[in-house]
C-alpha cells in the first residue's frame, strides 16, 4: 500500500523520532511511504484560536496535496482529528466541503491505522520498561481511539502497562489554551503528572506528542525522572 504520511509541524521540528519510527515500522510492514514535504501544518492553531479564515489558507493546501492519495496516516491524534473531524466543519458551505469530506474518509491516526486498517498488533517490538499510557483527548474522544494503542502495547516484549488514575482526564495542553490560560493548563498538567507518577512507571507513552510536550515540560521543570515517549518510538524499539 502506498501510505501518505502527514508529519505535523511540531513533530517535524521537535519530535522527529516519532515520525522516523512510523516510517520505519510501516516500511518494515512492506508499505511504500509518500511524504509530502510541502506540507507543514494542518491549520489547527489558527482554527482553535478562532481564525478560521487563516486556518483555511493552510488547510486548502493540505486538501489539494492529499487529494490524489490512497490513504493518509498522521502520527498525532490531535492533527488527525483536525483533518478527519474539523476540516468538514471548517469548510462547511464552501467549495471545498466535498474535498474535505473525501479526505476525512481516508485519514487515520497511526495506531488506529495499524490495528483497524492493517490488522497488525504485534510489531515485534521490545521495550523492557514499566509504562503508563496517556490518551490524548482528540484521539480518544474525537476519533474514538482507546483500545488500539493498548492492543499494540500488549504485544511489546518486556513492557508492563500500568493504567493511571483518571486516565481519561485531559493533560491541560489544549493548544493555544496552554498559553492563554497557563495557570489552568498547568494545574491540569500537575494532576496528570501526579496520576502518572503514582503508577511508578518509567515512561508516559502517548499517541499524541503535543500532550507529551506539555507533560514533559512540566516534569522537567519539577525535575521528575519520568520520561515521555511517543507510541511509535516504543513500537519501533527492538
Amino acid at each position: 500500500m502506498k501510505i501518505t504520511l502527514f508529519i505535523p509541524c511540531f513533530i517535524d521540528a521537535c519530535f522527529p523520532k516519532a515520525g522516523v519510527s512510523a516510517v520505519e515500522i510501516l516500511e518494515r510492514l512492506g508499505h511504500t511511504i509518500d511524504y509530502p514535504k510541502e506540507l507543514t501544518c494542518c491549520g489547527q492553531p489558527a482554527f482553535n484560536s478562532g481564525y478560521w479564515e487563516e486556518s483555511r489558507t493552510t488547510a486548502i493546501k493540505v486538501l489539494e496535496r492529499l487529494k490524489a492519495t490512497e490513504v493518509v496516516v498522521i502520527v498525532s491524534g490531535s492533527c488527525g482529528a483536525m483533518i478527519k473531524n474539523f476540516y468538514p466543519e471548517l469548510f462547511a458551505g464552501t467549495e471545498h466541503e466535498e474535498a474535505a469530506r473525501t479526505l476525512s474518509a481516508k485519514v487515520y491516526e497511526f495506531s488506529d491505522f495499524l490495528v483497524t486498517k492493517l490488522g497488525v498488533t504485534d510489531l515485534g517490538a521490545q521495550f523492557p520498561h514499566k509504562v503508563t499510557f496517556h490518551d490524548g483527548c482528540h484521539g480518544l474522544r474525537e476519533l474514538g481511539i482507546k483500545q488500539q494503542p493498548r492492543k499494540l502495547l500488549s504485544h511489546v516484549r518486556g513492557l508492563e502497562l500500568v493504567e493511571m488514575g483518571e486516565v481519561e482526564s485531559c493533560c491541560g495542553f489544549g493548544g493555544t489554551f496552554s498559553a492563554k490560560f497557563p495557570m489552568i493548563s498547568t494545574a491540569m498538567g500537575e494532576n496528570k503528572c501526579g496520576s502518572a507518577l503514582e503508577t511508578g512507571a518509567e515512561y508516559i507513552v502517548s499517541n499524541d506528542s503535543s500532550c507529551l510536550m506539555h507533560i514533559q515540560g512540566l516534569l522537567d521543570r519539577e525535575g521528575k525522572p519520568l520520561r515521555t515517549i511517543h507510541l511509535a518510538e516504543v513500537l519501533n524499539h527492538r
Partner: peptide, 15 residues
C-alpha cells in the same frame, strides 16, 4: 511553569 521543547538537531524533513 514548563520547560520549552527543543528543536531537534535533525528535523524530520532533514532526516
Amino acid at each position: 511553569s514548563r520547560e520549552l521543547p527543543k528543536i531537534a538537531p535533525q528535523t524530520f524533513r532533514e532526516w
